[in-house]
Design a protein around this nucleic acid. Structure first.
Lengths: 233, 233
DNA sequence: AAGTGGTCTAGACCACCAT
DNA sequence: TGGTGGTCTAGACCACTTC
């Protein structure tokens, strides 16, 4: 018997977790199948399934038809990262948000992006440079390319009031994207914008989104010094 | 009628996704409740629930009892990040992995960590410095503190063969952890270890794990220049 | 071929919370 | 307080994969 309610799937999950943490079920070991656990806990198999499915999603157990369920050997450290919507992130810190559009023009796609971001040959893309502020101090610098073939009405939008991010969410939702996180050294212009010194290590996020197979936008966000992206596991 | 099989929960999810992407259901708008959708698709409510729950987990819809289900206004960009087990990551790149233990000693916990990593007053922790290589080139530098009260047998382990990471997975599994990602400038010693020049921007991961309320380990991983952490959404 | 997880059903009761 | 999602049940069939 356990303290937790073993008739709810979360209660069962807690008990299963306990057995794994307490090494009652060792890594790599096969655990009883759903039907047996359902009988033990006095519940429907569906309920046990729900608990085990949840553990499988977090990577703690590995499930295979016919082969059964095993405690994972090397539980992968999966963490759910929330890519910030900057305005919300700043406001959640209790600081005042504003942004300033530094540049907006049509230009050909820079060659560097031709591989990952395929627009029609010779087509112009909309280029935006934005600086995001928290309490009037620079918070992040954004460089963005928007594929006008995917979002033609962007051509008429000034992005003075609404940020490109929010505009795109409502006008060109994506179905899929690639994200990468990395570090870079501030160059001369970047350091001026972010109010730091050249060479400072900065945290950056790069993201490409598509709708179906059509690229929508490529954005690079570079945060002011000291930024940390946090999450829990 | 749709092309996809609307009797499976994934088929229903696909159809719901289509309606959201095609703006049939606008952001912020309330969508039909489960019972109606079940009737429309000719399936059990449970099946619709499964599909909607999945969309809610990915943040595309927001569900509230009594208030119903709405298309998310600002779909948060959640991405599942897999914190690498370095050996596996290197080997997945088709390169040869090895690591070298640079330092191993007992010492008091540095004051900087007293807040986040609470061990008994005056207790020593095990400190490890490791350099990870890919094809004999430095790949990442690791600094780690292990709480001996949580993993007493670590005192006898040399960590010459097995890495601390893998040892801990099998000897002191965690229940919970905090992760943060950031950028830092290489200092003199770091740049020597990672075969780069001082000042270079480096990508770093810091992680603390606990078992219940007991801290197990604090680890900081600093990657060689050029490292990118990638994921998809 | 057979055992295991994956899913679906029809129905039921419950928890929450906006109204 | 009523409508909505959250969950549970008992049973069934199916899909996959190891044996």
């Amino acid at each position: 018997m356990t303290v937790t309610d073993t008739n709810s799937w979360t209660g069962i999950r807690t008990e299963l977790l306990r057995r794994i943490h307490d090494r009652i079920w060792q890594p790599g070991e096969r655990i009883p199948h759903e039907a047996d656990l359902a009988e033990e806990f006095g519940c429907a198999r569906t309920t046990v399934n729900r608990a085990l499915r949840d553990l499988a999603e977090s990577g703690l157990v590995v499930r295979k038809r016919r082969a059964g369920t095993r405690v994972a050997l090397n539980p992968p450290q999966r963490a759910t990262l929330t890519i910030p919507i900057i305005r919300e992130e700043v406001e959640a810190l209790g600081r005042k948000y504003r942004h300033s559009l530094l540049e907006r023009d049509l230009r050909p796609l820079p060659p560097m992006l031709h591989g990952a971001f395929q627009v029609s040959l010779g087509a112009d893309v909309l280029f935006l440079k934005t600086l995001h502020f928290a309490d009037d101090r620079p918070y992040a610098f954004e460089e963005r390319y928007i594929n006008l073939e995917a979002a033609p009405t962007a051509r008429e939008e000034t992005f003075a009031r609404i940020s490109a991010n929010e505009w795109l969410v409502h006008n060109a939702p994506y179905s899929h994207g690639d994200i990468s996180l990395f570090a870079l050294n501030a160059d001369e212009t970047l350091s001026r914008k972010l109010d730091t010194t050249p060479g400072t290590a900065l945290f950056a996020i790069e993201r490409i989104t598509w709708a179906g197979g059509v690229p929508i936008t490529h954005v690079r966000l570079i945060f002011a010094p000291g930024y940390r992206m946090r999450t829990e596991i």
